[in-house]
Simulated scan of single mutants.
Amino acid sequence: MISSRIELWVGRAVLLLLVLFTLAPFVGMFSAALQPQGSTPTGFSLPDFANFGNFIDAFRIAQLPQLMWSSLLLVLMVVPLSIALATLAAYGIAVLRAPLGGVVLVLLVAGLTLPFEGLISPLYFQMRDWGLLNTRLAIALPLIGLYMPFGVVWMRAHFIGVPKDITEAANVDGASGWQALWRIHLPLARPALSALTVLFSLWTWNQFIIALVMVEDPLERTVAGALGAFQGQYGTDIVLLSAGALLIMLPTILVFAIFQKQFTAALLQGAVKG
């Protein structure tokens, strides 16, 4: 009994330390964002007068409304198609047992080891040859392709966890592969699909390097590019940079807070089956 209480309190203490460790950078950025513009914040300190107007200035200087709209357009272009392709591919590999599905899966797993940065050069020349440079398609198409390895492996893990008896019962009732997917597997896959949608949305919203390389117009890139507005030739305004970074992260935090239950359910789904 005593040992179980000790384990409980130790667990709580470790969890509290992890929370404090996670929140510390955000607290530091928030305190820096409230300092007078042009100053150099150090440590965790609040000024005598909290300059909340810094957030308004950062919002205006970085042209965040235009960049947020651009990021939202990219999310709408990338995420639905990525989810659809990954789901269909995973269903074909895991449930329909498509020919050479194992080979495709190995190639996709190998693709997980490739960093985005290592593919920038070939992707750039490919988009140039297709005449898509300086368009949002030059950002969207590479992202869709780069998301496929993770998306297919993620959805395959879900389909593998679905009892085979359910699929066999649908086949006995005369359901086609498409009907089984639409009426049985997709409703069961809602937690996995919700979590994957959140991940793809956040990755697209915050994508920086591909948008920077493929598009010259800063207002057609993602919102992460807004931080460059606070970096001048001779220095960086740390105060406005901190305020802008917090504004950029706010939608990401809100999305995760809203969908955290679905995300947790997807992660635990495989552990509670059977």
Rank of each mutant, 00 (worst) to 15 (best):
M1S: 09
R5Y: 15
R5K: 11
G11M: 06
V19F: 12
L20C: 07
F21S: 00
F21A: 09
F21E: 08
T22M: 14
P25I: 08
P25Q: 05
M29Y: 04
F30Q: 10
A33Q: 10
A33R: 02
G43T: 09
S45N: 13
P47R: 10
D48E: 14
N54G: 13
A58W: 09
A62H: 08
L72K: 03
P80D: 01
I83S: 02
T87P: 03
L88I: 14
G92H: 01
G92T: 03
E117A: 14
L119H: 10
Y124K: 12
Y124A: 02
D129E: 13
L132Q: 00
L133G: 11
L141D: 08
G145P: 15
Y147H: 01
P149S: 04
G151W: 02
V153W: 12
M155T: 06
R156A: 10
H158N: 02
V162N: 04
E168C: 10
A175M: 12
W178A: 11
A180Y: 01
W182G: 05
L186V: 05
R190I: 13
P191M: 03
A195G: 10
T197K: 12
S201T: 15
S201M: 07
M214D: 13
D217F: 14
D217G: 10
T222V: 02
A224H: 06
A224D: 02
G225C: 15
L227V: 07
L241K: 13
S242R: 12
P251K: 01
A257I: 03
A257T: 00
A257Q: 08
Q260R: 11
